[in-house]
Write a protein that binds this DNA or RNA. Sequence first.
DNA 1: AGGTTATATTACCATACGGTTATATAATGT
DNA 2: ACATTATATAACCGTATGGTAATATAACCT
Lengths: 107, 107
Amino acid sequence: MLNQKGTTNLFEIIAETNRRNIIDLLRTRPRSVGELVERSQLSQPGVSKHLRILREAGLVTISKDSQKHIYHLRAEPLVEIDNWLEPYRRFWSNKLDALEQFLDEEE
Amino acid sequence: MLNQKGTTNLFEIIAETNRRNIIDLLRTRPRSVGELVERSQLSQPGVSKHLRILREAGLVTISKDSQKHIYHLRAEPLVEIDNWLEPYRRFWSNKLDALEQFLDEEE
DNA sequence: AGGTTATATTACCATACGGTTATATAATGT
DNA sequence: ACATTATATAACCGTATGGTAATATAACCT
């Protein structure tokens, strides 16, 4: 999770299946920890552990409804993944016309 | 690397920094193992180990130039990452007009 | 206050991962 | 055939990861 410099790597964070599941669940709507536990294969501490990692990565935020902690998706950091992917899209995209391909290859 | 079903998870494969480096290096052009070793912080066996993983994931192919093994990028599998990312783009993209946003939210 | 509900943290464990050194394999050249 | 070059595999190791059970913390309710 942490590299030598002590910085988190977003790629590793989304590499974990259960974490992607949580992210996907929160895309529908904000949910309490309990809801996430119900919809996962994990124990409550297991879910809480992943939520902590997601929180520290800035991928979720918390609001509170009495005892319940409601987790909200904050997808913005994922733009980092999107940016990395950018130069690879032309390898599979068939939507690019010849001119666009040409311009891409000029860089 | 392998989940319960014995299938590889592409997200985990690209989570590793050295592997992303290799992929990025191969985007420029096909390269021999030796070239990749020069341009990485890894030993030759270290590079070969990652190349095996990339090969088994279908992200690289090999051609041979006498003793040299030339690795070529095959980016197509990355479309899986791109697809996962798809529904999250609207969270940071400011290119979407109001109608498009509305349609997205209808689903 | 005492009990219940909801979540977070701690302590622990088994396993997987990434790295290295040493060795095997294979093609080239003399 | 033998040495050299290039790469792959094997064996091994320390550490990080993800999971759980047990416990702590906190808010609610009567």
